[in-house]
Design a protein around this nucleic acid. Structure first.
Length: 469
RNA sequence: UCCCCUGUAGCUCAAUCGGUAGAGCGGCGGACUGUUAAUCCGUAGGUUGUUGGUUCGAGUCCAACCGGGGGAGCCA
């Protein structure tokens, strides 16, 4: 029994018109409609497309009374039959079963969590092992997959090397939030030094280690040798964030380009996002139409619009001026030097321009140490891509390539240059201007699908107090 | 972590002022029909999140805890 080929899957079958052909198909029952007139309609889905195929099972099947009539949503079957033009509405083709083998019944139909009805997203999250069997989560899985492939296509076609940066890191401060510790210590009996603190020299790696919050610093090492690279891997943040757009474990794409400045960084970010949207619109029209109909009526138009038009670009300073002049009654005042609040970002993307906005040149005091100092002495060459509804989808910057400036900045922000010796070496030996950014993959999927909660665009969401499955 | 809302049947929800726990969907049984979220009739299904408190009496009021949602902060 080999893996099914695309042409043997339901999506392939639905495209065929060679009526009369003998076909074999496999899938899970979505609905069944019986006719005591002697036959049943069994709708099968195998995840290859949103649409399923209607199987006509008539009373002549030897197991019609004993098995077919008792099929319920969720049962798995193998069908052999004939491809026919469908006389019914809603589908062009159907399969008249010559045999219908039940591979797996649903043991307790009254408590099977997936019913032939709409379920709430909150409920489906509690049955994450079965939710991919729904229309919504099947569509999310296909779109997510297509976006992952589009990511590799985009960077590969531009000569970027895919680099795998470590998941376990010893960088104790990457400037991006709380980290999950990695240890093999028996937590009930942690070795301690004379000062009473855990003695990490005794731990597995002989030092304190954590799960990565970003592959950027390691990515820079390869950009400073191979020129253009990107990472695409899991990222972990132990922040106690309870929102619809944060996860404790998420996937991030981080390109890093040598011989590239902040302008090039923004150009690439914009191209990349538009490539993602265009690809999904072109290749997943059925799933996108579904999201438009059931999740968010505006997604298709919004994506089309964004794919076809340039992003708005503003400096942080210009954005602050706009916000101050907006006449909007914000809960938090807008002040140069302070981070923009959610309400400010939303006003900019949703009300002011109505599409993505790239903000650049932020005050250096609210940004990370590695961002390149601008000549004004006050700002750094940082950029954020903000989109309506989600907010920040990309954060990036031109990196500080001047060793003395970088080292000074590290000291100012309380970091010990010693621990970043290898990062500083990149500036010591053949330093080059370089830039990069990080895109939150789930936020991109969330934006594309229109789903309201980021926990519904990753198969098994991890969030504070939530690591089921 | 903070603010607000919320937890009742497998699911989505109702239950007036504190007074016998209800419906739709789903399941099961039947009827009917080339059906499409099929339709119609019948039927089973409950420790009202947990613990404690107030009360003659608590799904309802109070407290703590646990879970869920929305918003904020942190960020991608």
């Amino acid at each position: 029994m080999n893996a099914l080929r695309p042409e043997d899957r339901i999506a392939g079958l639905l495209a065929r018109r060679d009526f009369g052909a003998r076909v074999v198909l496999h899938g899970w029952v979505r609905t069944k409609r019986d006719s005591k007139g002697g036959f049943s309609f069994v709708e099968l889905n195998d995840g290859s497309s949103l649409a399923g195929v209607q199987v006509v099972a008539d009373g002549s099947l030897e197991n019609y009374e004993s098995e077919v009539l008792h099929l319920t949503t969720g049962a798995s079957v193998r069908v052999e039959g004939e491809l026919r033009e469908s006389p019914g509405k809603g589908q062009a083709v159907e399969v008249l079963a010559a045999s219908l083998e039940v591979l797996g019944t649903v043991e307790n139909p009254d408590t099977y969590p997936m019913q032939k009805k709409r379920h709430s997203m909150e409920y489906l999250r509690e049955v994450a092992h079965l939710r991919p069997r729904t229309n919504t989560f099947g569509a999310v899985a296909r779109v997510r997959n297509r976006m992952a492939r589009a990511t590799h296509d985009f960077f590969q076609s531009r000569g970027f090397l895919y680099v795998n940066t470590p998941v376990i890191t010893a960088s104790d401060c990457e400037g991006a939030g709380e980290m999950f510790r990695v240890t093999t210590f028996d937590l009930a009996n942690v070795p301690r030094g004379a000062d009473g603190r855990p003695d990490f020299a005794e731990d597995f790696f002989g030092r304190e280690t954590s799960l990565t919050v970003s592959g950027q610093l390691e990515g820079e090492t390869h950009a400073c040798a191979l020129t253009n690279i990107y990472t695409f891997g899991p990222t972990f943040r132990a922040e106690n964030s309870n929102t619809s757009r944060h996860l404790s474990e998420f996937w991030m794409i981080e390109p890093e380009m040598a011989f590239c400045d902040i302008e090039g960084d923004m150009n690439l970010a914009e191209e990349y996002i538009r490539h993602l949207f265009r690809t999904v619109l072109d290749d997943c029209p059925e799933d996108m139409e579904f999201f438009g109909k059931w999740i968010d009526g505006t997604v298709v138009d919004t994506l089309t619009h964004i794919a076809d038009s340039p992003f708005e670009r503003l400096t942080y300073t210009e954005a602050v001026e706009l916000l101050k002049r907006s006449g909007e009654a914000f809960e938090y005042p807008v002040e140069w030097g302070a981070d923009l609040q959610s309400e400010h970002e939303r006003w900019l993307t949703e009300k002011h321009v109505g599409r993505p906005v790239i903000l650049r040149d932020y005050p250096r005091d609210i940004k990370a140490f590695y961002m390149r100092q601008n000549d004004d002495g006050k700002t750094v060459a940082a950029m954020d891509v903000l989109v309506p509804r989600i907010g920040e989808i990309i954060g990036g910057s031109q990196r500080e390539e001047r060793r003395d400036v970088l080292e000074r900045r590290m000291r100012e922000t309380g970091l010990d240059p010693e621990t970043y010796w290898w990062y500083l070496d990149l500036r010591r030996y053949g330093t080059v201007p370089h830039a990069g950014f990080g895109l939150g993959f789930e936020r991109a999927v969330q934006f594309v699908t229109g789903l309201g909660n980021i926990r519904d665009v990753i198969p098994f969401p991890r969030a504070p107090k939530s690591a089921d499955f």
